[in-house]
Design a protein around this nucleic acid. Sequence first.
DNA 1: CTATTTTTGGACTGAATAGTCCGTATTTAT
DNA 2: ATAAATACGGACTATTCAGTCCAAAAATAG
Lengths: 203, 203
Amino acid sequence: MTREHTHTIASAKGSPKAHAGPGRPRCYDEAEVLDKALQVFWRQGYEATSVDDLTAAMGLSRSSFYSAFGSKHGVLIAVLKSYSDAALQALEHLAEGPRDQAVKAMLDALSDPAGGPRGCMLVNCITELAPQHEEVAELGRHHLKRIEDLFSRALSPDNPDAARDKARALAALAIGTLTLRKSGVPPESISTALEAARTILAT
Amino acid sequence: MTREHTHTIASAKGSPKAHAGPGRPRCYDEAEVLDKALQVFWRQGYEATSVDDLTAAMGLSRSSFYSAFGSKHGVLIAVLKSYSDAALQALEHLAEGPRDQAVKAMLDALSDPAGGPRGCMLVNCITELAPQHEEVAELGRHHLKRIEDLFSRALSPDNPDAARDKARALAALAIGTLTLRKSGVPPESISTALEAARTILAT
DNA sequence: CTATTTTTGGACTGAATAGTCCGTATTTAT
DNA sequence: ATAAATACGGACTATTCAGTCCAAAAATAG
């Protein structure tokens, strides 16, 4: 038994910012390098991205990379968590407005995400990885449930359960538009269709 | 100039069954091995599948594989074309029934495809590859357009263009359910939501 | 300053990758 | 039978892959 996986332990115990004792502090910003990693995964997908791609984009050496995230899979999970948090927070903000506007704003945000033609990072990863990586599936499930809840409450604030089916359909609708977009359907065609469906569905 | 890419030329000229002159005939069925390749790609995704995985599943030696399909990308395209043809043909058949039933049957078939939790092979490939592989994007665009047309004509047989937006929304809806399914949402939750949306959308 | 702890660069490893090549077997045409 | 053409098995190559390791640098605590 030499030394095995010391880094995974280090990165596993929550916030790596907990730093009191002696030792050299890391010379990079965690959120910043995670965003760089996100961009690469988002553009190329998980399997098509090599650790070299990641370290180059993040500006980290291999040892820093493995020390902080443990594995390629580890950095993906970290990226997905931060991405999901940010996306849900933005959606929650949009959901606060008056009913119709809230639904419209949420649909627009979901169907035309910050990633542009790259779609939604989480949906991409669900499609590519969920059947084989339970952790990704779990993250995706939670993310989608939250979106569904937001739609439910926007549609029917006093009795969200009554709008469950419609909310789920709206979520599916928005997610489906991402595939249209990726295959090259022009964005304006998508928004008119989305708007038509919304006026019918969000009664 | 030694010998370069003789195989791609061979496979490029349409049906490789055109075989008149001398020479040993291939000892495998093309449709059969393509289906084996489909299963592997469908389960694992494109990048996660190695040529060894493919040849093992297809029962071909490396040289037969490259002689027939030219590259990993080549066999993917062949698989996608045959998959798209078969799926569209099945959908066309479903679209022939009376309006409401046709829409319902098509939605059900799209949202619960033969692949089960693996979703739709074409949608998977669009998500994973379309932004980087124009040929896959083109195939996906065509496939989705055909689906949209089928919905349009089912909704409004005499003036399909009038139902364009609704048709596109229905297609997006069905495709979106695949992501829900992949992340683990139970199928019955999906079908009730789909049914609710259909009764509202397919007036 | 000294001791201690941590980060960092970069070399290294063994396995896996996509694709090539060649000798041989197998079939058809003459 | 013989020649021409194709399919096949499997070894081979050069590259890339994810992950490991170590020595040196850097920063803090006392």
